[in-house]
Each structure stands twice: as C-alpha cells, then as structure tokens.
Design a protein around this nucleic acid. Structure first.
Lengths: 241, 241
DNA sequence: CAGTGGTCTAGACCACGCC
DNA sequence: GCGTGGTCTAGACCACTGC
C-alpha cells in the first residue's frame, strides 16, 4: 500500500496485498478477513474502495463474503475449467482451415430431432465441414440449424464463424446457452474415409447444443475428431493475469 | 425502474432492464449504450450505482466498456465453456463412488516426469482409483503427486477431495492453475479388466495437470474412461442466473 | 444489541479518445 | 476542449448474523 503515487489503483493494490497473504499461507482457507471497516482504517481508504478490492478476490474465487458474518478465505477449488472451443486447443490458430463439404435442407432424423426438441421430419439446414490442421484432415463436423424463412445462410458465416455466433447471426437471436458433451467412439467408415484413415480407430465425439431464450434449442453441432491427431485442451485462468 | 420500493437492488434492476433491451434486439451488438452519466439521470440514480449495474452486464459478457469512448453491446461469443470436473457430468452426484486400488511411492517414468517437469526416477506418490457410477466401474484414474517430506496422505482426502484440492492439501500450496487434455484412445488390457469390459473399445483419456506458483507442476491425474458409459458435459452459464 | 456486508449518494479528480 | 469511463471519498441507511 502506501504507494499512493503509483499508477496502480488502490483497490488493486489492496487485492494484491491480501492475495499475497493468502498464497503465502499467512491467511489460510476458512480464516476470516478483517472487516471492511477495519481494512479501510488499516489502509487509510474508504469502505467502497475496500469493497472494490475484495470484489476482485471474490471473482477469482479466493474469498467468499457473507452478509452479517464477514469475508473468509475460500477453500481452493479449481474444478471449473474454461474450455475454449473456438481455438480447439491449438496454440497455432493460423494452421487451421476448414472445407465446406455440403449444405442441404433435410428432414430431421429422430436423434437430431430429439436433441433440438422438434418433430422428426421438420426441415433443417444441415452442413458438413472438414477441419484441417496443417492441411491434414482431423475432424468432420455436422451442423444442424432450425430453418428460418428468408434467412439464407452465407457460406462465409459457416466457414469462419464460431458455432454459437453463426447460430446467432442466422436466427437473429442472441444465443444464451451452450452445452457440450464429449464422448469416445469408434470411427465409422464414412468419417474414416474423409479423415483418410481406417475405420474402428478411437475418435472423440463432441456434441454442441446451442440454446436461445427459454432454453429453446437453436442448433446442434456434432464433431467427430481423429483421436490421435486431435486433443481438446482446457485450462483455468491463472490467478496472475 | 421507479419501483424503488422493491427488494431488488436498483443496480440489478438497471442491469435487467438493459439486458431485456439487448436480448430483445432493441440494442444490437456494437451499439453504444447511453453514457453512465446519462443513465444516472434517466433512472434517477447515482453514477456509482449505474456502474454497479453495468459491471454485472460486463461480467456476463453482454457489454464491453472502453475508457474515453463508452460502453457497447458485445458481440455474442459463447465459445468459452465451463467444464465441471468435480461433477463429471452427472446430475446425480449421489450415485458416485470411488474405490482406492493402491497407493505407492514410485520412481517417475519418463512420460510422467516430463509432464511434472522433474527428473525421471524422482520419487512420486502414485495412487490408483476406480470410479463407479451405480456400482458399475466407469473409469480408472492414476494420480501422481510430487513427494513431500513428512506429509502423509490421508485416505479420506484421496477418496473424496477434488484433485486440485487434494493437491493443495498435500503440498500445502494453493493450486493456481489447471490444464486438462482430453483425447480418445483404445482401451488397453489392464484397464479393460478393471472396467469389466474388453480391450480395444474406445475410451476417453482425461489428463489433468495441476500447477502451483511460478507454473510449477504439482500433480498429474490421468483418467481412462469407458467411452460408452461415460460422457463429459460442459455448459455455459446461462444469462439468467 | 453491536458488528457485518450490501446498497446508495453526491460530489470529486483522473486518464483517455476524439475533434 | 469536452465527454467518456475509472477511481475514490465520507458519509448514510438497510438486512442480516450472532450474542
């Protein structure tokens, strides 16, 4: 603290200071922090500024606050991970490419209809893509979108956009939810051919359901990935940004 | 607004109000919001209260603010997913059980040593667990922890704790990062036996690396999951908490 | 009851973007 | 220069917890 002359905001310095104490073990999980009023007096800053700093720590999951009781050092819990689907786990996004295989208007088959909560046979837009890394095919993706009258899909959208973003552009509705299911399957013949490998080898199946308001399913993406060539990577944000 | 008599905080009402406008399409991605001062006048509240409300929207990724320019409706982007590893994707956590197979002190083999950034042959604590759902074995997990003098591992910790939490308790260091890699593999004979199935069928391989400060790897968990019995599910937080 | 966090105000000054 | 968001203050009142 004290260094009021710094360019770093005071509430940020307070947060760093407390964070140091927590990470060094001076404040252990479950311990109570000084009250906001006390912290304000200690550091010579106003309560609102203290709260601003504590909010940072709470956002990082380092502390928890309870009205009427106090603020406490949280128990470590890093089981929430951020899975970045846009990057698909590679550090070299420039090596990515995708090839559009087909766009069709189809009648929904039972499995897809179930997931999209529509009647089997309803018209859907389907498009198939091949994902390439370094020119090598690594995954086949099938996307299904609920059909919207007078909303033609532009190829560019499909090629470059994120799936939720593409759904949002097509339906004109901001997507609100997203559920991904990951499982392991054996590669079937049609996909194996596209991936230039043999059928039967292990593959990752990544299903992504995009929801709009009122939990209405708007789109479904099913991606079959070559198990050896393709990995999904997720990481927590580090406490040190 | 107006309903100042409500129990809902004013800043929350402001956030809901703007959120409605955004989700209804009244404010489109890229549009500028009224300035904080203007919003304060419109709603008859102070600037700090306005900022409190805008902070909520920013946290949800609905708006972005730029000093000197203004606040703008963000472009939808739901490609970041929260993967909850503690729950392992089931809605019925009560059906979970785990069986400890073995705890050993071993010398690190090359693959593990590489990931933990230690010299091959260094002493490690290894423990193997079997994960059961409804009494059925669905996954085998191998955990490796860097050996800490005078820090015996308690069986309870292993059985119930989250991996990052277990690491934190054992090392006495708060874990700071977490990286998970998911890939598809073929089930090998030893795991197949434990999972009471045949080798060669597809399986999910989930590797979790836990880091401490200065990006020091503290622990490694390798989980082999039955591809058909086990799915990983991730979802975005909905805008409507 | 006293102490806590949660909300809110009406000002102030600053750093930045833009004209 | 003016308008913007970002920081900060010194108060106030409320809702809640726990004694």
């Amino acid at each position: 603290m004290k260094t009021r002359e710094s360019f770093v905001p005071v509430y940020f310095q307070l947060a760093e200071d407390l964070k140091e104490k927590i990470l060094a073990g001076e404040l252990k999980p479950g311990d109570a922090l000084p009250s906001e009023t006390q912290l304000g007096e200690q550091y010579g800053i106003s309560k609102m500024t203290v709260r601003n700093g504590l909010r940072l720590l709470a956002q990082e999951g380092l502390i928890e606050s309870f009205r009427g009781k106090g603020s406490f050092v949280a128990h470590p819990n890093l089981s929430e991970l951020i899975l970045n689907l846009a990057g698909h786990g590679s550090e070299n996004p420039q090596d990515y490419d995708s090839k559009l295989l087909a766009i069709n208007v189809i009648a929904a088959e039972d499995g897809v209809a179930l997931r999209l909560q529509i009647k089997p046979g309803t018209k859907l837009i389907q498009f198939r893509r091949l994902l390439l890394i370094d020119g090598e095919p690594v995954a086949v993706e099938n996307r299904y979108l609920t059909y919207q009258r007078g909303k033609p899909l532009v190829e560019q959208e499909i090629k470059y956009a994120d799936f939720p973003e593409a759904v949002a552009r097509h339906t004109g509705i901001i997507t609100e939810g997203n559920q991904v299911t990951i499982s392991a399957v054996s590669l079937h013949q049609p996909e194996a051919e596209l991936l230039e490998t043999s059928s039967g080898i292990p593959a990752l199946k990544v299903e992504q359901l995009v929801y709009g308001r009122q939990n209405t399913p708007l789109g479904l993406s099913i991606m079959i990935c070559h198990g050896e060539k393709y990995h999904l990577i997720a990481s927590t944000r580090s406490f040190f940004g």
